[in-house]
Nucleic acid binder design. Sequence first.
DNA 1: GCATATTCTGTACACCCGTACTAATTTTTT
DNA 2: AAAAAATTAGTACGGGTGTACAGAATATGC
Lengths: 209, 209
Amino acid sequence: MRPTEPKQSFTGIARREQITRAAIEVLASDGFAATSIAAIADRLEVSKGILSYHFPAKAELLQGVVTLVLNDAASWMKDRMGRANSFRGALHTYIASNLSYLDGHRTEILALTEVLANARAVLGVPELFERSQTEAVTALVALFDAGRAAGEFGDVSSRMLAVALRATIDSTSASIRLDPRFDLSRFEHELTHLFDRATSPIRTEREEA
Amino acid sequence: MRPTEPKQSFTGIARREQITRAAIEVLASDGFAATSIAAIADRLEVSKGILSYHFPAKAELLQGVVTLVLNDAASWMKDRMGRANSFRGALHTYIASNLSYLDGHRTEILALTEVLANARAVLGVPELFERSQTEAVTALVALFDAGRAAGEFGDVSSRMLAVALRATIDSTSASIRLDPRFDLSRFEHELTHLFDRATSPIRTEREEA
DNA sequence: GCATATTCTGTACACCCGTACTAATTTTTT
DNA sequence: AAAAAATTAGTACGGGTGTACAGAATATGC
């Protein structure tokens, strides 16, 4: 039997998190299609009735996965994005901390990717996805705008820079997955160099012409 | 009953392509999870036995979707990437023709995205995916390398440029899907500008230091 | 125009899914 | 220690899946 509000209790939310983490593991190792209620329960060595008990529906469990990882990543970024002495420094920190998160949280990122890729099939996730994407880009746009206003960055579209940077960083998770020996520190160095060039305050030949 | 080789006949391959196109439509409009054999047969107003008849398994049909779209895109690119008079010109053409393909083939791109996102669940597709990705990046690396050797491009990692450009272009399909009024010509202009800056032969302040 | 090969329909089947639900068990409260 | 509440196990069910298959319909070859 189900209590009036099973989520409130202390052990209740602990169970929920435990289940969510199990879901993340299954998602990462077996993919979205293979992540059934039964598979998650098996990994947890628990009857699948528990999942129905702690989560009204599978969609909410998957939403939980998305928010857990997003929050985790956000707090990671928050911890590292302490005030830099320059906007360019902030850009460097942004790149470095994003890539280090990808490196150290491969399971979470893989799980997130699986759910987001199948967002359409999960009620409520598409909105979550779009919102997080928009927020990430918006924050970057603000950074580039501020840097340009301060004269640190040259004349390039902030939105374009933001979109390109995010796309490149996001694509990195696939590279890591395909090649476990992927050289992330080299990648970070080259990516930083690329965006330093792209944002350089010096005008190019073409712009002078 | 099934003949020895149903694929050889003229009408047979026509049927196969017809089925593949129906699959593309369902994938694009309803997503991977909803793309069942029954759903494709319904769209085609045909019994679902036909699909089993023309395709040994669903996986082969989905592989067909991937190869059809990839080949279509490849021939589109081939038609447009006629010899440019400069490597920078080739870069511009590359960007322009990629984006114009995205713009004019939204259904195909959407379908491709759906299958690739669920690649793990489909036998044979992951390899297809990885190979096409690698080929695309390799071709771009060659372009950037040649451009740098000719003195047209500055000192940036060709591989980084290639990865970033492909990631940005690929991410554009999501932007188009989320916002049908997405300004692609403006995007093309800004993306071109960004990579012109990034590949500029002029050294930046930081590089001089 | 008849025999043969091909293509298509419709149904059947075994399987897995998410959820509902009952009953047993454990924990908490009184 | 008894009663109540919360948690878990286990099972059942309706529904959708991909594939197999038998037979009807159509096209092809002689």
